[in-house]
Computed example of a mutant assay.
Amino acid sequence: MKELTKAEEQVMQILWDLKKGFVKDIIQKMPDPKPAYNTVSTIIRILEQKGFVNHTAYGKTYEYHPIVQKDNYSKFYFNNFLSGYFNGSFEKLVSFFAKENDLDIKDMDELMKHVKDDLKQDTDE
């Protein structure tokens, strides 16, 4: 899997939310100032070449849908981020986060409680 550019990721985020859509649908969900139709169309074609998107043809019009799930890309992106900035160490990431946000032991305990609750919910499902 390849890492996406900011523009590609923006289009993918919209397409993940929409589940499927035409270029005009994607543009409609983009913030102002809206990019040109050809710009979004080009980004979609690049995403298709990278294996993130496929399409269904209706004559000359294409409806696009993601073929890479958001969760899969999130894991890939996070692992790249972790290895690129923290030498693959989750502990270094957490330490950095705690220092940058002036978290004390009480705050860290509260975070751990939330993590434990989330993990418990995942195993209960």
Results as ranks from 00 to 15, higher is better:
residue 68 V to A: 10
residue 56 T to I: 15
residue 54 N to F: 10
residue 42 T to N: 13
residue 31 P to F: 05
residue 24 K to V: 07
residue 36 A to Y: 12
residue 27 I to K: 07
residue 66 P to K: 00
residue 56 T to W: 03
residue 47 L to A: 05
residue 70 K to M: 02
residue 37 Y to M: 06
residue 42 T to R: 14
residue 56 T to Q: 13
residue 29 K to L: 11
residue 50 K to T: 08
residue 51 G to Q: 10
residue 31 P to S: 08
residue 26 I to V: 07
residue 39 T to C: 06
residue 26 I to H: 05
residue 59 G to P: 02
residue 29 K to D: 11
residue 31 P to M: 03
residue 29 K to V: 01
residue 65 H to I: 04
residue 39 T to L: 00
residue 44 I to D: 03
residue 56 T to E: 15
residue 32 D to R: 13
residue 30 M to G: 04
residue 54 N to V: 05
residue 45 R to H: 14
residue 63 E to T: 10
residue 36 A to N: 11
residue 56 T to V: 12
residue 53 V to L: 02
residue 37 Y to I: 05
residue 68 V to C: 03
residue 64 Y to S: 00
residue 51 G to T: 06
residue 51 G to H: 08
residue 53 V to G: 04
residue 67 I to F: 07
residue 24 K to W: 06
residue 70 K to Y: 03
residue 30 M to K: 06
residue 64 Y to N: 07
residue 32 D to L: 15
residue 63 E to W: 06
residue 45 R to V: 11
residue 34 K to N: 00
residue 65 H to K: 12
residue 68 V to R: 08
residue 42 T to G: 10
residue 35 P to W: 01
residue 61 T to G: 07
residue 64 Y to T: 03
residue 72 N to G: 10
residue 35 P to I: 02
residue 49 Q to W: 08
residue 29 K to I: 03
residue 54 N to E: 14
residue 59 G to D: 02
residue 55 H to T: 11
residue 30 M to D: 04
residue 66 P to L: 07
residue 33 P to F: 02
residue 53 V to N: 04
residue 48 E to C: 12
residue 36 A to M: 11
residue 28 Q to R: 07
residue 28 Q to M: 04
residue 40 V to M: 08
residue 43 I to C: 06
residue 66 P to Y: 08
residue 34 K to A: 04
residue 70 K to I: 12
residue 70 K to F: 10
residue 63 E to Q: 15
residue 58 Y to S: 12
residue 26 I to F: 00
residue 30 M to F: 01
residue 38 N to A: 13
residue 71 D to M: 14
residue 47 L to P: 02
residue 36 A to I: 15
residue 52 F to M: 09
residue 48 E to N: 09
residue 59 G to E: 07
residue 45 R to C: 07
residue 42 T to F: 12
residue 42 T to M: 09
residue 32 D to Q: 14
residue 49 Q to S: 09
residue 39 T to D: 09
residue 71 D to S: 14
residue 66 P to W: 11
residue 69 Q to H: 14
residue 46 I to G: 09
residue 48 E to H: 11
residue 47 L to S: 03
residue 24 K to E: 01
residue 25 D to I: 00
residue 47 L to M: 03
residue 52 F to V: 00
residue 26 I to M: 03
residue 61 T to S: 12
residue 59 G to C: 02
residue 47 L to T: 09
residue 72 N to R: 15
residue 47 L to G: 09
residue 69 Q to K: 15
residue 24 K to M: 05
residue 54 N to W: 06
residue 29 K to G: 05
residue 46 I to S: 14
residue 31 P to V: 10
